[in-house]
Design a protein around this nucleic acid. Structure first.
Lengths: 136, 136
DNA sequence: CTCTTTCGCTTTATTTTTGAAAGGAGTTCA
DNA sequence: TGAACTCCTTTCAAAAATAAAGCGAAAGAG
């Protein structure tokens, strides 16, 4: 289904999704139209779900990056989930997990003070364990 | 430093980084050359770190997505880190964290069997807590 | 107040890329 | 042997990117 050339294409586009089809073609030894057809096929099949950018969060004012393991207080999660909707600017992703907790929340904050405020509000809906990202 | 138009540009490129400068310009009410100059500025400043794609991991054969909290056995982490290098295909990211553990490892596997093999090898270097992603 | 510089944009024109169409080579299958 | 299919290349018209020139508003100096 996916051959070696397709994997090379995905690799190159992961590194730089703004390559022109001509440049991408040169990297994988195909012409522009040939590689363009393959990319369209990968999109149609749903292998490529979209094209995005990598942002430097610190340059956007987000200096704190954290993972928070969530243990909701009640058995139904709605209060927690609707709380999240009020905090969209700080949420990167909310993973539903099996294991140590109900959710794993990835989030970002301008400062520890703002993180602290967030945690106080979060604590009305859920218990948590905080992990702050130091590197990599 | 970053005005409202820059934020709009980052937003649009996050949704689709392969927009032509002309299309992007139309969305933020600028001409192609004008928006192109702004994007180049955002790149030069390091706000935009790169352009990438979103891949459907299941379609690539990775059906299991997990976060593993790592507690290294010894005080020096080299054995664990060099073990990771041997497992690159399955590793998404390894975050150094402060909190519950030394690292938070995001990884993907074709099956629970392969995850199990991974965990047995991991356990030679570190203790761990496993969280398997169920959704979102 | 006026002159000058700077900045960010638009317009224009050239170069480059895209994408559609036609055609060729290799493979499969009857 | 040949029909159907796949995947590629070549060709070419249309679209986009890019470089250059110029415009107008804002800021600063005399």
């Amino acid at each position: 289904m996916l051959d070696h050339t397709d994997m090379r294409i995905l690799e190159e586009l992961s590194n730089n999704s703004r390559l022109s089809m001509k440049e991408l073609g040169a990297k994988v030894h195909l012409t522009g139209p040939a590689v363009s057809a393959r990319v369209m096929k990968l999109e149609d099949e749903g292998v490529i779900e979209g094209y995005s950018i990598k942002l430097n969060q610190a340059k956007l004012g987000y200096f704190v990056h954290a993972f928070i393991t969530i243990i909701t207080k009640s058995t139904h999660h709605a209060p927690y989930l609707s709380f999240l909707k009020t905090q969209e600017g700080n949420i990167v992703r909310n993973y539903k997990i099996s294991g140590d907790g109900c959710y794993l929340l990835e989030c970002k904050f301008p400062s520890n003070e703002i993180l602290n405020t967030f945690l106080e509000e979060l604590n009305e809906h859920a218990n948590y364990k905080l992990s702050i990202v130091i590197g990599k």
